[in-house]
Structures are given as structure tokens and as C-alpha cells.
Design a protein around this nucleic acid. Structure first.
Lengths: 115, 115
DNA sequence: CTCCACGGTATCATAAAAGATACCACACCA
DNA sequence: TGGTGTGGTATCTTTTATGATACCGTGGAG
């Protein structure tokens, strides 16, 4: 998604949190704190090694999360939100809240499809 | 983007507002009120007829915007936010605000890349 | 030796999103 | 009769995102 001139600063946030697994990663890190790779993977059924890695790297790239490698064998890598990353929380909150009402609404529509 | 079990209600909002032109459309409709197709198109340099139509249709599908056709020739079609659509405003606000700080931050990083 | 755990990478295939381009309908106006 | 303006649709191509699959490195346990 390229940038369109003025106004649309909205895109920046959007570019960062869109990606099939990013919101989920962020929620896990926000709600449960630092996690290692394998923990995240386990909590995200369906994700591939590659995809998880990729999304994590992209978030790291943007300074949203921080990657810490422990020089051990077998390897241990932890991911944590940065302070900057935490600044996304209001957005995620707002979306979460909205989403709840949205699903309610969908249910209502199903119950009275004739209206 | 498929749904992943619980927690991630965030996705619903995300699914609705992601799309290369959707945020821009929404901002225009929110900030400037009802607009006709050609007005939007004109305000969104680079968008194709097809793309604009598609994104508008998707938003309409979700009841975020309303499409009104006036039986004239040449045709006149207006797009407006629905009340439901306006409920997205806090999210867009939050992202807009965040985006502003983000660009500030990027500027700072460019000025002191050595830190 | 051999195998395992962990967190990867590399390669290839598929799906989804976006874009370019051409065409359409129709009342009206010259 | 032909051109114009609006808001489209239909095809085809390109670009991005996602996914499947196989392989890698290391040090300790057996």
C-alpha cells in the first residue's frame, strides 16, 4: 500500500498492524507479556514457522516488538512489546471493542433478516 | 484473512477498514459528508474507476456506507456514512493520532541515525 | 555416533489484492 | 447523426501476501 499525499496518516498504523497474524501476536504480547517463539507458535494454531517469523520480523523492523536472543543451545528467543509498540494499545482496544459490538450486530441481523 | 478462534475480535474491524483506498474513502465521507462518486474519485488521485467502485461496494456490503442512486441521466450516485459506519470513527481517530506521532518519530530517527 | 530441541532459512506454489484497459447505457444537446 | 457526462462492468495482467515443504546448526543426552 503506497502512501497517498496528506491526510491519511491512518495508513501508517494500518500498515503496521495488518498482516494475517500481526494482531494476534500483538494481543498475546500485550496481554501475556514477553513470549518465546515456541510459545507464540503454540498459541497460534495454523501459523507456519515461516509466517510467524516473517510477521515478527516486520514488527521488529518497526520497533513495535523487541527480539532477544539468548546464546544457548538449543536456542532461546524472546519477543516483547517495546514502549513504542505499547502505544498501539488504544487502537487495538478500540478495534477490539468495536469488534464485539459488530459480532453482536451480526447476530441480530441473522435473527431478523426480514427487517 | 480467516478468523482465528477467540480473542481476535480485532480482526473484524481490521477486515473492514483495510483495503488500499478504504481508509481514505472513510475519511473523506466522515470529514466532508456525503459525496458523489466523481467527487471521491477526483479527491483520490491514482485510484481507478474499478478500484473505487470495488472498495465502495465492499464498504456498502458491511453497512458502513450507504449508496443512493438518483434516477437521472447522466447518473448521479451519492455515498454517505451510515450511523453504523460512524461508529468506526474512534478507531480511525486513534490511528490518525498515532500516525502523526509515528511520522514525527520517523523524522527523529533520520536526524539521529547513530543513536 | 545419533538424535533431539529450537529457531530458524530457502525454494517453490497458490491465492488474494490491485491495476490497466476497453467497453457499455442513456438521455440530451448541437 | 454524433459527441458528451456519469457511473459503471468485463477481461486480463501484475504485484503482494500467504502457505507447504524441506533443510540447517549446535551442544548435550543416550
Amino acid at each position: 500500500m503506497e502512501k497517498v499525499p496528506e491526510q491519511c496518516r491512518v495508513e501508517d498504523a494500518l500498515n503496521i498492524i495488518t498482516g494475517k497474524w500481526k494482531p494476534i501476536i500483538l494481543l498475546h504480547l500485550l496481554q501475556e507479556g514477553t513470549q518465546r517463539f515456541s510459545e507464540l507458535k503454540q498459541k497460534m494454531p495454523g501459523v507456519t514457522q515461516k509466517m510467524l517469523t516473517k510477521q515478527l520480523r516486520e514488527l521488529e523492523e518497526e520497533d513495535i516488538i523487541q527480539r532477544t536472543i539468548y546464546p544457548q543451545v538449543p536456542p532461546k528467543v524472546e519477543y516483547a512489546m517495546t514502549d513504542y509498540g505499547r502505544s498501539l494499545e488504544p487502537i487495538l482496544e478500540a478495534m477490539h471493542e468495536w469488534g464485539r459490538n459488530h459480532t453482536l450486530r451480526k447476530r441480530q441481523k441473522q435473527q431478523s433478516p426480514t427487517s
